[in-house]
Design a binder for these strands. Structure first.
Length: 596
RNA sequence: GGCCCCGUAGCUCAGCUGGAUAGAGCAUGUGACUUCUAAUCUCAAGGUCGACGGUUCGAGCCCGUCCGGGGUCACCA
């Protein structure tokens, strides 16, 4: 019997007790939804396989003592199929022990459903647009964006496992001033000049500059000879770099697409496959920005002041109104965001029911205006628009924080990370941390190419289970004749219970937008498996001198030299673990190796 | 100052609708490979869950006030 089936049973018993007049002042409309009746896995095995706090939750409403009310539940539960015993303990916990066949039923469920075990369709019919990373196309993805790539893609996979249609989307900010900074940084690098005060530097800038020069040359253009304009210096005498020249424009035209390709490749190598690569520029060239502003104007949320055009976001809960067209006639960045959201919701292909934004903590100040904009369009903030704020990645050197900046050229990139520890370890360690917490990356640790990563613990469990398969096959052990009710040892029970918890966990990870829970679950499952492996065998071994063990002899035989029906059942259990670990690792974008 | 996140073992972090004796990894000490992979397992040690109040059968979790750390505030993008 699965924990879900148990919860349903307890929920039904609560209703029956009311209908039979045994539940005091409790009425059926006071009973919370079934989800509130989830059973828990007690830490202490003396408290049963599963425990319910239903009686304690309802006792007050029933006007009864929790312990007495629990006894009523216990009496009903004791009669149910698959339940071995029920006991009321402590203040009113109902502790349930399943009979071994019932507890082991999960094994066949897993093997029948395979990689679909635990998946559900409770989000089906909804299209979720998940925008993440969206790093500027002015350089390689840095460690911060890498975190969102790992977390965002895993979240997408988890949401899909809950039945949602997910559109993974990357937004290229290819419109604004940062593109000019990028272009003039390239010009400076190409001529060996000082980096502009607001420019970028680093090996990638030199490399892109070289590639642009080569590409232009192949097209018959001597790019370094094109007309230049000196941008002058700022008040402190720092160089502002190349002005709006023909040469800068040529660099921009050629370099920006290179960056698009670089980023696409980085994401693909990181096993993140975006469905839509959206260009900010297209919002302007397609007139969507103007349409969006006109839409808001029609809704009465636009006004003119001081020569600028404003969005009256305070009407919808923002702290202050926001400029969308500046007094110099240029659009503010936010104008494109408005058009972009509108596009996500009303585009022809896969319009979003829910637009989820994953943003870094440095963008949290945007939530107010974004939600106001959502409301202004008549949508429901928090429902149609959901913003997840993730904390930043801190880079440490010798235990001290290092400030990354493109200006200083000391940015830690996605390639730095994956070159050092590989994609599996990178994705896993970034996805297993709750994005509400900051992450520290120590440069010394990266340089050491350390193998210390919990991902190997989980992967090893998978490789180990594959090895058991190979040995079982060699010994002629198959599922034939398996009796899963013989999975009755303590170690078996722990593994079975861990397997049984996967469906609820997967759903919770989706509902809470918490893919890191998948990783922690896998570590728990792997731990029960490794312990199991150390005390029990699938392939029987020959016991020398078993009689000498005295009273231990039978326990030893069960553990190390199982009879055929038990060995076959253990093989099934082994394979069920293998299946769930592979499924879980896939949700994290991590490989499940057959050997290590 | 306003708003957001965080504070749990020496370090890095989990902690599931509030639940029984607060967990794991690393590090430290200790055992287990002539028999399915020792990237594993066993045992030990390590805690005022930042502080103080409140809510209740019960608080690491919920509410309030403080303390400490990080982030943010624009006619920048």
């Amino acid at each position: 019997m699965s924990p879900e089936a148990l919860s349903e049973l307890i929920f039904n018993i609560a209703n029956n007790l009311v209908n039979e007049g045994k539940a005091g002042t409790l009425t059926t409309d006071l009973i919370p939804p079934q989800a509130k009746f989830a059973v828990m896995r007690p830490k202490d095995r003396a408290h049963g396989d599963w425990a319910s706090n239903a009686a304690m939750q309802l006792a007050k409403k029933a006007g009864m003592k929790p312990h007495d009310f629990a006894e009523l539940f216990a009496a009903e539960l004791a009669n149910a199929d698959g339940i071995k015993s029920v006991e009321v303990a402590g203040p009113g916990f109902i502790n349930i022990v399943l009979d071994s066949a019932s507890a082991a039923a999960v094994v066949d469920t897993v093997l029948n459903e395979g990689a679909n075990y635990g998946k559900n369709d409770h989000l089906s019919g909804k299209t979720l647009n998940l925008e993440f990373v969206s790093a500027n196309p002015t350089g390689p993805i840095h460690i911060g964006g890498t975190r969102w790539a790992a977390v965002g893609d895993s979240m997408a996979r988890v949401l899909e496992a809950n039945g949602a249609k997910v559109v993974r989307e990357y937004y290229f900010n290819d419109h604004g001033e940062q593109i000019n900074r990028f272009a003039k940084s390239l010009v400076a690098a190409a001529h060996g000049e000082e980096t502009p005060i607001d420019g970028y530097k680093g090996a990638y800038i030199d490399e892109i500059a070289r590639r642009v020069i080569d590409e232009a040359k192949a097209d018959g253009i001597a790019i370094l000879d094109l007309p230049r304009v000196d941008g002058g210096v700022d008040n402190d005498g720092n160089p502002l770099g190349e002005g709006d020249s023909e040469q800068r424009e040529e660099f921009r035209k050629r370099a920006v697409p290179m960056m698009f390709d670089e980023i696409r490749k980085s994401m693909k190598d990181f096993r993140v496959n975006f469905d839509v690569w959206f260009h900010e520029n297209s919002l302007y060239s397609d007139g969507e920005v103007d349409k969006a502003i006109a839409d808001l104007r029609e809704r009465g949320d636009i006004y003119e002041k001081d020569g600028a055009t404003w969005f009256e976001s305070t009407k919808h809960g923002d702290d202050k109104d926001r400029v969308i067209i500046k007094s110099d006639g240029n659009y503010a960045y936010f104008a494109a965001d408005i058009a972009y959201y509108r596009n996500k919701r009303h585009r022809d292909n896969d319009p979003a029911d829910i637009a989820i934004y994953m943003l870094g903590a440095d963008h949290h100040g945007y939530i107010g205006r974004m939600m106001a904009m959502c409301a202004a369009f008549g949508d429901e903030p928090g429902e149609n628009m959901q913003i997840l704020i993730g904390q930043l990645v801190n880079v440490l050197k010798d235990g001290k924080a290092v400030r990354m900046s493109k200006r200083a050229g000391n940015v830690v990139t996605i390639d730095d990370l994956t070159d050092a520890i590989g994609v599996d370890a990178s994705r896993y360690s970034l996805a297993r941390t709750d994005y509400n917490s900051p992450v520290d990356i120590d440069l010394n640790l990266l340089a050491s190419h350390s193998n210390e990563n919990p991902v190997y613990y989980v992967q090893y469990a998978h490789a180990r289970s594959c090895n058991v398969d190979r040995n079982a096959a060699a010994a002629g052990i198959t599922y034939e004749g398996a009796d899963v009710s013989l999975l009755d040892t303590a170690a078996d029970g722990e593994v079975l219970a861990a397997l049984a918890q996967w469906p609820a966990l997967l759903r919770e990870a989706g509902d809470l937008r918490a893919p890191h829970r998948v990783a922690h679950y896998l570590e728990d499952l792997a731990a029960t498996y490794h312990k199991w492996y150390n005390v029990e065998r699938v392939v029987p071994m020959e016991l020398t001198d078993p009689e000498a063990r005295g009273e231990q002899a039978e326990a030893l035989r069960i553990a190390k030299a199982p009879e055929p029906a038990r060995a076959a059942a253990r093989l099934k259990l082994n394979d069920a673990v293998k299946t769930v670990i592979a499924e879980g690792l896939d949700l994290l974008g991590v490989a499940a190796p057959d050997r290590m």
